[in-house]
Amino acid sequence: MSKASSELILNADGSIYHCNIRPEHLADIVITVGDPNRVERVSQHFDTIEHKASKREIVTHTGTYKGTRMTVISTGMGTDNIDIVFSELDALANIDLETGEVKSELRKLSFVRLGTSGALQADIPVDSYVIGSHGLGLDGLLHYYKGSEDVMMPEVEDAFIAHTNWSEKKTRPYLVEASESLMNKLVSNQTKQGITATACGFYGPQGRFLRLEPNPADINEYLTSFSHGDLRITNFEMETSAIYGLAKMMGHEALSLNAIVANRILGEFSKDPYTTVDNMIVYALDRLAL
């Protein structure tokens, strides 16, 4: 069944509505960053840049790094933006934009998020790199899609709900595993691994107290003290769970690599976060190009 024009929205030049690129502009390896300014911090290392596009907070550069074709795209902050960008990139890969029909042969993309995050364990220092072996969604996005239960891990979710006495007024947390193949590429003695928790906001949902008191006020303590088998929650941010869930449901690979710019338990912040992020970018590019 073809998609209605109100569902699959295109610009006048045939590009997809928000991302503003056409299928030929999309590489199989896609690096996602939150900050639009970080796109150039990644693409400055490319050998060549074949295409640039921008619309609102979504900036895209496609080129090659050491001969490997890659696209780097900014998503902005939050799982709502991930829903837009990942849905449109999957459409570019797997829907014929002229007919609106899903292609008979589906294309698999490899998504690698390069982000910043706060550590939730005292032994994870600022300026280190953390790979999310799993994404813990406190945001609710995946519950809006049929079949999302197929990619979730209910046993661990139930243990987390019991541990935190999770309020029934809030959306049910969900857990999705990272891509094994991308884990094998990116893991090294320079990285730490664990569950990356994804919040639906930066302040109250992550336990920050300005004028309004978070509920619960001690959410970080609950996250830090949770464990299930050899799993523990290592860090907190705003995108990973949606990336893992949508990618897995669509048949893509996804991994989230975060530079730790703050340690929420120790109350520390990196003295040079830009250098830490730049070093992480080169680390990821080198391993993706192998």
Rank of each mutant, 00 (worst) to 15 (best):
I29Y: 15
R56Y: 10
E40H: 12
E40A: 13
L26T: 00
F46H: 10
V59C: 04
T32D: 10
G34V: 00
H51I: 09
A27D: 05
K55L: 12
F46M: 06
F46Y: 15
I58K: 04
E50P: 00
H51A: 13
I29D: 15
R56L: 07
Q44I: 00
G34D: 04
V30A: 06
V39N: 02
I31M: 08
D28R: 14
D35P: 11
F46Q: 07
T60L: 12
E50D: 13
E50V: 09
R41K: 13
V59I: 04
T60S: 13
I29N: 14
S43D: 11
D47Q: 05
V42M: 11
A27N: 06
E40D: 14
R56D: 04
R38D: 05
V59E: 02
E57Q: 12
D35G: 09
A53D: 02
A27M: 06
V30L: 03
V33D: 04
P36Q: 07
R38L: 06
A53P: 05
V39R: 03
D47N: 14
H51W: 05
D47W: 08
T48P: 00
R38G: 02
A53H: 01
Q44P: 00
K55N: 15
G34Y: 04
S43I: 09
V39M: 02
E57F: 11
F46G: 08
F46P: 08
D28W: 04
K52M: 08
T48G: 01
V39F: 02
P36L: 03
Q44T: 02
V33P: 08
